[in-house]
């Protein structure tokens, strides 16, 4: 099939950036979306134009490195990551607009690559259980009810791609944060730091310039791992409890 691609190009964070239009022919429906961009890049390279920078690594939908706004939707029209989106989701003659994640907390590095280190800094503020190597008790000394273990797992599947932020009209990272709060909060091991975790992570989240949550739900609709919206309720509940406990 033949496509018209409108792609955001920006030389560096300081550069203003602009949309560029490219025509691409002979696109196979079996290509992944990123393979389609690989093919475009080979053509650009051959014609002497610098290839378009975009992030990807595992290309199996698990590392969270890829992520593009495709026709205004994070990761495009399917509930999956950009790398798992295939060209059979498009048709001959389509015009596709491709942009980087749009969020002031994710500055553009180049073209379609953004800096998501703000997520790492949120995790640094409490997205863990403090246990030094070697100090762990025997694994079977901790029993976890299956329901709690399953819910913890379901929300621990977050891949940190940032689609939730890109989708949110407020630019909030509440779904990302709520997933971690819920994962660790469901487990007996996570109780000791439950209050400080939520207070410190929310503090860092706001400091990074992410917006507040107003329960719109675009985040969960865009999430390739289908993290449910109720993790944000959990986040708010945990924050209220922590404040009640004097934090």
């Amino acid at each position: 099939m033949k496509l018209t691609l409108n792609i955001w190009r920006q030389a560096s964070e300081a550069d203003k950036g602009a949309m560029h239009t490219y025509d691409l022919d002979n696109v196979s429906p079996d290509m992944s979306f990123l393979e389609m961009l690989d093919v475009l890049n080979e053509e650009l390279n051959a014609s002497g134009e610098e290839p378009i920078a975009f992030d990807s690594d595992c290309r199996e939908g698990i590392c969270g490195m890829c992520g593009l706004m495709i026709n205004g939707e994070p990761h495009g029209p399917e509930v999956t990551t950009t790398c798992q989106l295939h060209m059979r989701s498009f048709k001959d003659g389509d015009e596709i607009t491709i942009e980087p994640w749009r969020s002031s907390a994710f500055p553009v590095v180049k073209d379609l690559c953004v800096d998501r280190s703000s997520f790492d800094r949120i995790i640094q503020q409490g997205g863990y259980i403090s246990v030094n190597t070697g100090s762990a008790p025997e694994a079977h000394s901790i029993q976890v009810p299956k329901e709690a273990a399953d819910r913890a797992f379901d929300v621990a599947t977050c891949i940190g791609c940032g689609a939730c932020v890109a989708a949110c009209p407020n630019g909030s990272a509440s779904l990302f944060m709520g997933a971690k709060i819920t994962h660790l909060g469901e487990l007996p091991q996570g109780q000791a730091e439950r209050d400080t975790r939520v207070v410190n992570m929310v503090g860092q989240h706001d400091h990074e310039g992410f917006g507040g949550c107003t329960n719109i739900g675009e985040c969960t609709a865009a999430c390739p791992k289908e993290i449910p919206l109720d993790v944000i309720s959990q986040l708010n509940r945990d924050l209220r409890m922590a404040m009640k406990h004097g934090h």
């Binding site: 863990y128 259980i129 246990v131 762990a136 621990a156």
Partner: peptide, 17 residues
């Protein structure tokens, strides 16, 4: 032991083990 203490959500049986 270490991973369980960190909160890695391994699969569990109904008894919680």
């Amino acid at each position: 032991d270490q991973c369980v203490a960190q909160g890695v959500p391994f699969a569990r049986e109904y008894g919680g083990l």
